[in-house]
């Protein structure tokens, strides 16, 4: 066994998918604070909040620590919109797709973002800067159409033009930072 490992180390050529370096100690800590039999989703929400996403390593560790089968955890991840196994971009742009936003032109806003960022809705740009997603009603209907950047920044009464400006502004923000 050890011989095989050392051999792999010597020959770096066939690389598996890169495994992100993640401090997994948080998983055990979170599991210890909750009851996995009744609070599995809460635990997963905490972990998603901390890591930003739930990669394979985290799911495996959660399965080990909680005794819940990884298949069941994946079942939950794929069912609920909140969970993702992919990291999101630095700026997560969420375009509200509630009814009020829809009738106020949300589809045009999504088109404009897709155009300005260069990715389809639901994807992350190659440079990792932007994620673009459509989200269910955020409940700020009076400001339709509404766009959120990250968790805290909300832009109301958007137009396609303002969407393109926002992308440009975020790019500048990134350069300045």
């Amino acid at each position: 066994m050890s011989r095989r490992i050392s051999k792999l180390v010597e020959e770096p050529a066939p690389q598996a998918c890169p495994v992100p370096e993640i401090d997994l100690s948080l998983v055990a800590k979170t599991v210890a604070e909750h009851d996995p039999s009744s609070q599995l989703i809460t635990i997963m929400q905490k972990l998603q909040g901390a890591y930003g996403y739930l990669p394979e390593t985290v799911v495996d560790e959660l399965s080990r620590q909680s005794g819940v089968a990884a298949s069941r955890i994946y079942g939950i991840i794929t069912f609920y919109a909140q969970f993702t196994t992919e990291p999101s971009g630095r700026y997560k742009i969420s375009v509200c797709q509630g009814t009020a936003c829809h009738v106020a032109g949300a589809p045009l806003i999504i088109d404009a973002f897709e155009d300005a960022i260069g990715v389809k809705c639901g994807c992350t740009s190659e440079d990792g800067l932007f994620s673009l997603e459509g989200v269910n009603c955020v409940g700020a209907c009076a400001l339709a159409p509404v766009v959120r950047v990250g968790e805290d920044e909300t832009h109301g009464r958007m137009t396609p033009d303002a969407a393109r400006d926002l992308v440009a502004e975020l790019r500048t923000r990134e350069v300045e930072a």
Binding site: I41, T42, Q45, I76, F79, Y80, A81, Q82, F83
Partner: peptide
Amino acid sequence: NEGAGAFVCGEETALIASIEGRRG
């Protein structure tokens, strides 16, 4: 209990499944 983003969880039996930590 914070919902994890599934419209169907507004249906009472789905909501219960979700609190119990299952697919809603």
